[in-house]
């Protein structure tokens, strides 16, 4: 019974992502990226594709869950959800998993385009693990962020700010602006850097180093802690506050 309910909730979320045109937007964005990257050559392409996947799995995860919560608030539908037998954890997981599925598919679309067009060498298994884990993680953070935003505009602003703040050092490092071993250690506590590592190491040739395993473990453990102690614990208050009744 319980598992069925979670599946129905996820199915409902996925249908609404479609009906509220979020999927249309994400396909549109994937096409734009694909067209842009198509005209980029050689080395630049090779360093841009991982950045693109990284941005898609992090910043876009924030955006999608943020907009979903915004629709939910606008229509006061959370109130109806709160008076069903669904548990808080089921409501949250439905949101997080549906958005992860959706964003995973849109990232997969971009990767597929390049595998076909540009003969990208990539481990499908590792990139799938990386994209799913990173998307799950950042969707949860995005949900947590929306707990503290009054409206969609402030949500957008803080998402931009936070992801820029976190992305900038990582991108600088990737583009070899920041150099030196010390940065490798400092940057690892930044989840976007961990995300970066497990994404870039999914490209061939595969040589997984300690940073890969550290990043993987770091994302899984800190993700579970964030879910349990921040996302789940503060959900009910937030849900009531956007219930609009």
């Amino acid at each position: 019974m319980k598992n069925n309910r979670l599946i129905y909730l996820i199915k409902g979320e996925l249908i609404r992502l479609h009906k509220y045109k979020v999927t249309t937007i994400s396909i549109f964005i994937a096409i734009i990226w694909s067209v842009l990257l198509f005209f980029v050559e050689g080395d630049i392409f090779n360093s841009l594709l991982p950045v693109l996947i990284l941005v898609d799995a992090t910043t876009m995860s924030f955006m999608y869950i943020g907009s979903v919560m915004f629709f939910e608030k606008k229509e006061s539908t959370m109130s109806s959800m709160l008076v069903t037998p669904s548990k808080d954890s089921e409501l949250i997981l439905a949101k997080i998993l549906s958005n992860t599925i959706h964003n995973f598919l849109s990232t997969a679309l971009i990767i597929t385009v390049f595998v076909i067009l540009k003969d990208v060498q990539i481990s499908y298994l590792l990139i799938a693990i990386a994209v799913i884990l990173v998307t799950l993680y950042h969707t949860s953070i995005g949900l947590l962020l929306s707990y503290y935003q009054k409206d969609f505009t402030t949500m957008l602003m803080s998402v931009m700010l936070i992801s820029f703040a976190l992305l900038i050092p990582t991108v600088l490092f990737m583009l070899n602006v920041l150099t030196g071993d010390i940065w490798e250690y400092i940057l690892l506590i930044n989840p976007i850097q961990s995300a970066n590592i497990i994404i870039t190491q999914s490209f061939k040739p595969i040589t997984l180093d300690w940073k890969y395993y550290f990043s993987l473990g770091y994302l899984i453990i800190s993700g579970l802690l964030i879910y349990r102690f921040l996302v789940l614990r503060n959900f009910k208050n937030y849900a009531v506050s956007i219930s609009g009744v």
Binding site: I15, R16, K19, Y20, E75, S76, T77, S79, S80, V83, G244, V245
Partner: peptide, 15 residues
């Protein structure tokens, strides 16, 4: 066990 209606009718408008 219970059924609830709130002060405002609440539905997903695009469904």
């Amino acid at each position: 066990d219970i059924g609830v209606s709130f002060e405002m009718p609440i539905h997903f408008s695009k469904m």
